[in-house]
Design a protein around this nucleic acid. Structure first.
Lengths: 227, 227
DNA sequence: CGGGAAGGTTTTGTATACAATAACCAGCGC
DNA sequence: GCGCTGGTTATTGTATACAAAACCTTCCCG
């Protein structure tokens, strides 16, 4: 993407993630143009991208709002992410080179180091974690898969502000990654898939615990709950 | 989407699907603006959408080309579609109302009628088929899933011009749909998933047979082949 | 007091002019 | 002839002005 357009995109995104703007709030293209310092044309491109990533939504009448995700939305995204990323892990197990596996190992050492600091360095953890997962997705060599996952992985990141990471959660993540590396080294796609599955599903539950008490436990009469 | 923008989108799309433009050919926004009769601004929006749907691609230097999909691209899309649509079928099995199941039955009668004409009415078949699958996806109540699938389902449609549908293939599709309806009526998600899986995987193979002889059967040394 | 139309204001959509960048081509030195 | 360099054209990117649509307020009439 081109300069102004790209600038608008990251500026708006940063603005949204900074938490200085409430979910559900209306935005106008003019506002965003002022904030970002470019004209409305590139802002509109950036906005379309952010709509696609579901950070922004439009009302039926084309007005622009900050998305606010329900717990069900979050769960839906986790379910889809799990499905796709398990597939990615399985494919990656067949495709990763020795060097790439070594890289994953290094990334996870970095991640582990971040976790074992006291207090744990969450930012460093998140960055290493992102890189680790991204490397796996890349190795799956499935461009559309990568494209889809890119969108879904946004979700938890967006709401991470509210999240408090316990050290034991972080440690478990590091262990999962270790096991994933082992599965890759063994070229065992089924193993990799299984580990990725539990890794992500647990992530969902720890995430859901903080983001909001689950909507309803028994008695799901409604429409769009539960898988 | 707004009027001009929407018009541009469908005009360009139709233009691409008409086959009057070769894969890999360069297009310019000006050309498209002339063809569609609107200015470049809405054309650019339409183009972005078509890029997202992978019907158009941009070179590293932002020039615009008609996408040409390799056999691997097609297979990748079928694999992803299968993964997602099996999930949709499973969810739908738990969520479809009696009326919705009846609707599916009706749609499949329509489809069967189209198949049993002689010669079979392929256009009518495709339309009923599309409606059938769409109804299932809708019933899954997973908006992002629907959004993703919408893109993937484009793929075969685009290349259908070259396709010759044999009546036996069409009949098998109709039978699959019948079994799917039975699985839904029994509220058996596993069954529905399994039927959808074989349905789509077979579709891939019959599709692949016509679109091009498979790249390589044994000896997949290359990079991005085979699942 | 309520409903609903009229008009003004805000916001999004489109056209167009211009700027920036990439592709092309010709001429020159070697 | 080959490759580079300069300028020329083609193409995409951005700003801005205007058009269309939606929203909101107010006021009028029942």
């Amino acid at each position: 993407m081109s300069r102004a357009s790209e600038r608008a995109y990251s500026a708006i995104r940063a603005h949204l993630l900074s938490g200085s703007v409430a979910a559900g709030e209306q935005l106008t293209e003019d506002q965003l143009a002022q904030i970002t310092g470019v004209s409305r044309t590139p802002v509109r491109e950036a906005v379309r991208r952010l709509e696609d990533e579901l950070l922004l939504v439009r009302s039926d009448t084309k007005r622009l709002f900050v998305a606010d995700w329900s717990r069900d939305d979050i769960e839906e995204m986790f379910v889809l992410r799990q499905m796709l990323e398990c597939h990615a892990a399985e494919r990656a197990a067949k495709r990763l080179s020795r060097e790439q596996i070594a890289t994953l190992e290094a990334l996870n050492s970095e991640l582990t180091a971040a976790v074992e600091q006291s207090p744990p360095d969450v930012v460093r953890f998140l960055e290493a974690n992102r890189a680790f997962h991204e490397a796996i997705i890349d190795a799956a060599h499935s461009p559309r898969l990568g494209q889809m996952l890119a969108k879904l992985v946004e979700a938890p990141v967006v709401l991470r502000t509210a999240r408090t990471y316990s050290q034991s959660d972080l440690r478990q993540s590091a262990r999962d990654h270790d096991e994933l590396v082992a599965a890759f080294a063994a070229r065992d796609g089924d193993w990799a898939r299984a580990v990725m599955g539990s890794h992500l599903r647990r992530a969902f539950h720890t995430f859901a615990k903080t983001v909001g008490p689950r909507a309803d436990d028994a008695a799901n009469d409604q429409d769009s709950t539960e898988a």
